[in-house]
Amino acid sequence: MTTYVLLINWTDQGVKAVRESPKRLDAARKELADMGGSFKEFFLTMGDCDMVAICEAPDDAVMARFALKTGMAGNVRTRTLKAFPENAYREIINSLG
C-alpha cells in the first residue's frame, strides 16, 4: 500500500454545514475502504489546513479517484501528497551515489 497525506480545507458550502462533517468523514472512510484503501489517521488542524488525513491506497489512481469523488460533493478541497516511508527515503537518497 502507498501512503498519502491529504491536506483538507472546507469550502464555503462545507463550513456552512460543518455539523454534518463527522457524517461526511464516516462516508469518506467507507468510500476509500470500498476502493481498497483506508484512513490511518485523521486530524482537525489549526493553520493553513482545516484537516489532515493520513491514508493508504493500493495505487495513485485509487487515491486520485477518491480525492476527485470527495471534491465532487463540494464540501472540501484537498491537496494530496504521496508519502515515502523512511526506508524508501533512505533507498532513494542512497541511490544518488
Rank of each mutant, 00 (worst) to 15 (best):
E86T: 12
D50P: 04
L68T: 05
L7R: 00
R77S: 11
N94W: 07
A57S: 10
R65H: 09
T70A: 06
L6M: 13
T2S: 14
K40E: 07
E91A: 15
T3M: 09
M63S: 04
R19S: 14
N87L: 13
L68R: 03
P22Y: 00
D60A: 15
S38K: 15
G97S: 14
G47Y: 06
R19T: 13
K82A: 12
A73V: 10
Y4I: 05
M51L: 13
A28T: 01
L44C: 10
G14S: 07
Y89N: 12
A57W: 03
A67D: 01
L6T: 00
L32S: 02
R24W: 04
A57G: 11
Q13E: 14
A53I: 04
V5H: 05
G37D: 02
F39H: 04
L44G: 07
A67P: 00
K16Y: 10
N94I: 09
K16I: 06
A53Q: 02
E56G: 08
M35Y: 06
I92Y: 13
M51I: 07
K69R: 14
M63Q: 05
N94Q: 15
A61D: 12
R24A: 07
R65W: 04
R90H: 12
D59A: 08
A57N: 02
A27I: 08
D60Q: 14
